[in-house]
Nucleic acid binder design. Sequence first.
DNA 1: TTGAAAGCGCTAACAC
DNA 2: GTGTTAGCGCTTTCAA
Lengths: 359, 359
Amino acid sequence: MAPHLNRRSTLRDVASHADVSIKTASRVFNNAPHVSEPVRQRVRAAAEALNYHPNLFAQALVRRRSHLIGLVYENPSPSFVVELQMGVLDRLRNERYRLVVLPITSVAKRAAEVVSLLRSAALDGVVLAPPASDDPTLLGDLAKAGIACARIGSTTASDVGPETLMNDQEAAFRLASYLIELGHRDVAVIRGDPTHRSSEARMRGYSDAFATVGTTIRADRIRDGLYTRESGEAAAGDLLGAGDLPTAIVAQNDDMAVGALTAARSRGLSVPGDLSIVGFDDSEVSRIAWPPITTIRQPVFEMAVTATDMVIAQLEGRDPVRRVEHPYSLLIRQSAAAPRLDDSAKAATRSSKAGGEVR
Amino acid sequence: MAPHLNRRSTLRDVASHADVSIKTASRVFNNAPHVSEPVRQRVRAAAEALNYHPNLFAQALVRRRSHLIGLVYENPSPSFVVELQMGVLDRLRNERYRLVVLPITSVAKRAAEVVSLLRSAALDGVVLAPPASDDPTLLGDLAKAGIACARIGSTTASDVGPETLMNDQEAAFRLASYLIELGHRDVAVIRGDPTHRSSEARMRGYSDAFATVGTTIRADRIRDGLYTRESGEAAAGDLLGAGDLPTAIVAQNDDMAVGALTAARSRGLSVPGDLSIVGFDDSEVSRIAWPPITTIRQPVFEMAVTATDMVIAQLEGRDPVRRVEHPYSLLIRQSAAAPRLDDSAKAATRSSKAGGEVR
DNA sequence: TTGAAAGCGCTAACAC
DNA sequence: GTGTTAGCGCTTTCAA
């Protein structure tokens, strides 16, 4: 009577209440075979009566499974993180696994600390977002610690854990090509955080595209950002401060593109009339901004789902796919248009020099 | 030799390696007194050599502490959730506690399941966002399960756990009063999810404000939304479909306000020229939208920090403050302005009928 | 200041 | 089908 007032009831309590051995009771809760139906019923009834709930620590101790999966990220863009997290949670729905959120301030600076953090969180596995997914120290230690992992969007090869990614360079090439088709030849680039390897891949994509029309992106038109809106606004402000303006700004993510939009607006420049702006990611903000931002859709949600699936697969002993590449797509919205006539003229001159292979 | 290849080393390993008893080793790692300095050193060295990391399950089993704190929310507005989560994480930084994210589909429909979910997550405590913070069943079961909690923005009184909130009704009153000052008399309201109690409080605030000028909000100008952008767009579309337009739309959160903005734009209405729109929350989207949305700043981040602090206080045996009310503020941006002349005339007529106490 | 031994609540060989 | 028993790795009386 009054079973759960002082002490949670244990498996032993249930067993004696149902008049069976503790092992039999255990079998019932683990849906193990070799238990007769009447006994099953009796045990369940006892559990109900005693308000029994298994002690997870005891289970975890003996099973060596916490059913906790971590999501490791460094937080530049909130929208990116949200997307990521929703993907993980979506895959975890109806699974026993729970998500532990592990924001890291700087993976590059202290990969070692991160692993001890993960260890002390008793995680079964982790989903690694960039740039954690690119850190060799972290990956090595993770393997040593025996924590399952899956990498999202890493750009360096590693045999630690399966990976899911998107071809950043190709996507960037596609986006830049679109700008070129519109007639842009003199663009500025706001890069992302240099510790994120994707920044380089995207940069290469842009450069390659302009190389096809014999143009290079002027070095003084390139700025480093931090993937945040504020950094985008600052970089764009800097870029637009000079008298000599580019016809377009290519931001390496949407948050920075939105920042650039703000900077342009505060200088009285109309977008895309006076200046085109493009982003990357297709995050929520790119749709809400006005004008909506032309961007590359990066399947962050899908990648997160896949990565989570890869972690679960390892934990359940299934062989995960080693590598899944998700498709990107170019989303043409309203923040980019053909440059104004005088700029086009300039561009035309250049492209004819380059062989005029632009339509 | 090769200590951690097959098996993680345990406290026993460390103890024998340091040539002390297991208890002494334990004392060292728990910074307990009564251990001589040389012994301390020896134990630490052994731990280092064996790459020892305490097994958290074993600790949790005997200490009855998982150091896991849950965040329970129902996911209407991503920006709200992000803000919330950042607040919790901010408070948890430099603490041993980890955050487990627990999105719930419908608290109202299955409070019972939620508790068993929480139980099976082995949480030490939970931060409850609305509407979970308002659910009496959930709160009761939580208390019974002995899980510490803190409630955010609940509107119903409860003695289960401390709470942190903002005065929704007063804030709504303030916002509506601003609209009234601008000259609006015929506004439409897009309410939030009816299962969230804050919807009612805000609605009362709006109504009370209009009552001060002898006006009531027309029943056919009120729509139910779901706190999502899509629902806001749909509701606004519906509202703007009729020939007889309101001079302003009051959305119960920013996401829906942004949706309304889209709906207005797609009908060729300029904001705030033809139609004023106001939101609630001061979430990221309200700043990014164009025009930026006039709204109430809800201190979600701060409330989350406070609530987390309250949970930790309970876990550490400190007495938490029972109730903290955070201040709101009215953020005047560019989505609301005086209504057009013809509408003003209409409004003037009405307000003179009402006694003309409007300046 | 240190150690031996008894559990925390559960699972899993292995016997019956 | 069912029960006995020995741990999982740690903390904690209590004695030395």
